[in-house]
Design a protein around this nucleic acid. Structure first.
Lengths: 220, 220
DNA sequence: TAGCCTTGACTGATCGATCAGTCAGTGTGA
DNA sequence: TCACACTGACTGATCGATCAGTCAAGGCTA
């Protein structure tokens, strides 16, 4: 109700952006099934019909949200990744930073998309298809980089390391206050500045442990 | 339809177990919102009304599924954890094994509950409350063990390590074939026997990296 | 006029939940 | 042994609410 004034507002294709932004929040809060087109439209300040006019279906809208956000994240990831010399010192840490930082920063969409992203790990059929389409190409570049930074590691182990690193990222990205609760402190214990460093340290330590285990023991 | 014979069958509260089992599969496949009480009842071979008769609401049924499965998993975890000497050699690896193995083994409920478990990471309000109730007590014991096995580590870092380790576990537990796909191989590359070892190696390596970073550099 | 946007009104389907009522089994008193 | 009272388990029918999606028509811009 109370249609939003549109005379002085930015206008243009405001509705499109509003819908995408509202959809991101709605899908994050309730999940795909739980989100309602009606509530979503209300949040965006448009009619429910407009959602279908622009996106055709709920599935398409969901895919659009993930496509747009993953594009921003993955473009940033690749820019960072390609600036790294895989043979240089500390390459592995920089690779993981390139993987983590874009998802945690403002490009990552904040808590809203973060919840969606973490949910992609659970992986029903719909989400798996989206991951394959929007995330796999970038993932393959990271796999190559990990393989180059850890000479002698098998392709399977590189894939495993990447999978583990994503799991660690997902555990962080959907901040639910549990870690602070378990640590027995308020919310000051775990600051965001140290978070990326801890994430990276953990991932590097884990990756090197796997690489070391796999490598022929005689050669080491 | 076709009421199950109950003369020679185990009888007793067969329906209850059927409902819980069906609910676990249904919730895993579709998520909480996506699962339907009607389809769930059909799968269990009972009427939809019986679900409400026994559990009262969809929320209660969902909680019952998680309570039963988490009980099995956490009991096994604690048995394993308490058999470990935190000061002994390789204690950290054994701690992580105690965390991972029960969730991956037959007690963990197979792929069905695994998907639910992985979804708990995403963490909407409902799931967060269930995690707090059914998983936090066990988590606190693991935090203590991690702290004992890594002397000098802060409570906050121990909580972080635990959080990261769970993320790694979640990435594995919802097997969606992505790692095999990215590795460019069929499904033979990543075998289940090496999985626990890889998981543990990664977690130990990561944990020690964080502990090493935190510890006063001068003392090492 | 022509062509996008956008809307309100609407649909059939499905949702979780509730209802009165059936049925088998069990205890009890005589 | 019979009759009665009572219970827990379970069901089909149905509730109001909400779901995603459709449609004709109204603006607004050019």
């Amino acid at each position: 109700m109370g249609g939003a004034e549109k005379a002085t507002e930015p206008a243009a294709s405001d509705a499109l952006a509003n819908i995408l932004r509202a959809a991101e929040v709605e899908f994050a809060d309730k999940g795909f099934e739980g989100a309602g087109m009606k509530a979503l439209a209300l949040r965006a300040g448009v009619s429910q019909s407009l959602l279908h006019y622009h996106f055709g279906s709920k599935d398409n809208l969901y895919a659009a949200v993930i496509r747009e956000r993953s594009r921003l994240i993955n473009e940033d990831r690749l820019v960072r990744l390609r600036a790294i010399d895989p043979a240089g010192p500390g390459a592995l840490a920089r690779i993981f930073e390139a993987l983590f930082v874009p998802a945690l920063g403002p490009l990552g969409g904040g808590r809203a998309y973060a919840r969606i992203f973490a949910g992609l790990i659970a992986g029903n059929a719909r989400d798996q298809a989206l991951v394959k389409e929007f995330y796999d190409p970038t993932a393959r570049e990271f796999l190559r980089a990990i393989g180059a930074a850890l000479p002698g590691v098998t392709a399977a182990d590189a894939a495993r390391i990447y999978q583990f690193a994503l799991g660690v990222l997902a555990s962080v990205i959907a901040r639910d206050g549990r870690t602070e609760r378990l640590a027995g402190a308020g919310d000051a214990v775990i600051d965001d500045v140290g978070l990326v460093e801890a994430l990276t340290a953990f991932a590097v330590g884990g990756a090197e442990a796997i690489a070391g285990k796999t490598k022929n023991p005689r050669e080491d």
